[in-house]
Design a protein around this nucleic acid. Structure first.
Lengths: 332, 332
DNA sequence: CTGAAAGCGCTTACAG
DNA sequence: CTGAAAGCGCTTACAG
């Protein structure tokens, strides 16, 4: 190959050095028809040899595609939420995206409104090809906004009439849990839930309230330890429940502490379970029964849908209940 | 303002509608001198009104700046490492970056070699303005590579002779911990460490081994539960230590389980502490003594250094030991 | 199958 | 202080 070439070269340099046209180089690079196999291979070999990649902005400007997917997470500093979930989700997404040469642009927002502003800017700037939307709310403004902006999007975790989605059946999660508790003889269960505005939370609550069998009370929180503790304390007055179900790790930890302070022995006097599994559930004593899901694979599925285009697919996160000592006692 | 303008407009449209040149619009947009205050304000008002942002790729192509910072994390699926750490770190970085209009491009790599390939591609593509480098190894190839590539970078967590860094004094962490254990009367401590190749791990180990006072043994692991358990079991044969120090949450959890299975009562028969604090340390029973650090603020500092340019600054993550029941007993 | 040329939408010397 | 023009480095009709 020509010694003049290096990774700083432009396609015109490469074309010149190889005695072909820039068009030919571009066709080879983008796997487009229009050049002979021989030419293509010669070009690709030269490119591979000097370890060259095309200028990102130039490519994006001319073909209009950015090869990047955006993800914004709206979370307040207080309600840190489930960090493990997001890290696993992002890692799963990213693994699939990078296989196809896509990048993941990550942003945090302090509110849903700020998140919407970010989408507007991204759309104006042609900053991303598409976005993944998480934590759908009731009356969520995002699907409509994204539709209006013409920004491709996939709703992660919920169904949407406006946009493709990778849908998880969250009802199953609550049903599995209540079935388990029912088998243990519980007649009165308290569900210490997260933000009522979140669709998956209200879905779980609905299942819990409609369910025949154990009587379920729902206490909504903002995911802080304070509100979890308050919810548990409230339930402790009067004839409290024999089992508590918490929405995630943070609530579980806070709830268990409050129960202990009140003198309850977890797993004996009262059952405790979490709808989100984690290392912590395993590590606590007693270990906490939880619903385990493959969040990494969920991230992969969202990325696949994003790259595939318009198709909506139901997705089986195959939640499975992992029984641990915190719910082993049978009540009657 | 002209009704023809909308967010799809280009600077030439805006210029035409306002009766100014594209140059004037660009100057207003980029806060450059060369236009009258009046003109500037008129342009900015028009832009604000239609909520317009310039085309990202076009701007990047012409001024050569991408306004994005890259972060690649090399982690194997097995060694999930400290998810909370990365999430907090990224969130802190992102908060600062977005204030200045910068995005964070996130990528996972399966190995250090793959990480290097990503940097090469990013450099070729002019994909990012700079990168943050985490988890520095001994004989790490990345600083030299990045220097060669001319890719701006900041080393997060370690000093570097080649590149600016936001340096944490990791020795202090181990010293604080050993001082605490010494005060509790421990004469024999085992440090269940992470990957020996990681600089912060070997630094901690060095401090531990050199330290006068308690005798410290070091067991390296790959952060998996299996190796943590093996390390603890090995120490249990013979005259085991009276205290264990674990590098992070995952190791702590696995180690505590192993100690329990061996019949030890944590906090009484044996002391346990973690060099990384987490909700889990708080939630376990007994709660685990740990070193707490403000990872979010660390991320902010790294972002600041990235944006500021070349300066290297020492950074005080103000690690503080949080004493909990797992080390409360005094040995003698 | 190939090449010369225009175009993507900005920024920035350069000349007025 | 302002405007016409070139240029960033690709891709892609378009004509051969």
């Amino acid at each position: 190959m020509s010694p003049k070439l290096n990774r700083q070269s432009r396609v015109s340099d490469i074309a010149k050095a190889l005695g072909v046209s820039p068009t030919a180089v571009s066709f080879a690079l983008n796997d487009k028809p229009g050049i002979s196999t021989k030419t293509r291979e010669r070009i690709l070999a030269a490119i591979a040899e000097i370890n060259w990649s095309p200028h990102y902005a130039a490519r994006a400007l001319s073909d209009g595609r950015t090869s990047t997917i955006g993800l914004v997470i709206a979370r307040s500093p207080k309600a840190v939420g489930s960090e493990a979930f997001f890290m696993q989700f992002m890692t799963g997404m990213q693994a699939k995206l990078s296989q196809r040469g896509y990048g993941l642009l990550f942003q945090v927002a302090t509110s849903l409104e700020r998140e919407c502003v970010i989408y507007e800017q991204w759309a104006d700037q042609h900053r991303v090809d598409a976005v993944a939307v998480v934590d759908l709310h009731r009356d969520d403004p995002r699907p409509r906004l994204l539709k209006e902006l013409g920004l491709k999007a996939v709703i992660a975790g919920e169904k949407s009439s406006l946009l493709p989605s990778v849908y998880i059946d969250d009802k199953v999660v609550m049903e599995q849990m209540l079935t388990h508790l029912e088998e243990r003889g519980h007649k009165h269960v308290t569900y210490v839930a997260g933000n009522k505005q979140l669709r998956h939370v209200s879905q779980r609550a609905q299942v819990a309230l409609k369910r025949r069998g154990p009587k379920v009370e729902v206490e909504y929180t903002d995911y802080t330890a304070e509100q979890a503790a308050a919810a548990v304390r409230k339930q402790l007055t009067g004839t409290g429940p024999t089992a508590y179900v918490f929405d995630n790790e943070a609530l579980t930890i806070a709830g268990v502490q409050t129960l202990r302070e009140a003198g309850a022995q977890i797993g004996r006097d009262v059952a405790v379970a979490s709808l989100e599994d984690s290392l912590t559930c395993e590590a606590m004593s007693p270990p906490i029964t939880a619903i385990h899901r493959d969040t990494y694979r969920f991230g992969e599925a969202v990325a696949d849908t994003l790259l595939a285009g318009e198709e909506t697919e139901p997705f089986d996160l195959s939640p499975r209940l992992i029984e641990r000592d915190s719910t082993k006692t049978v009540f009657d």
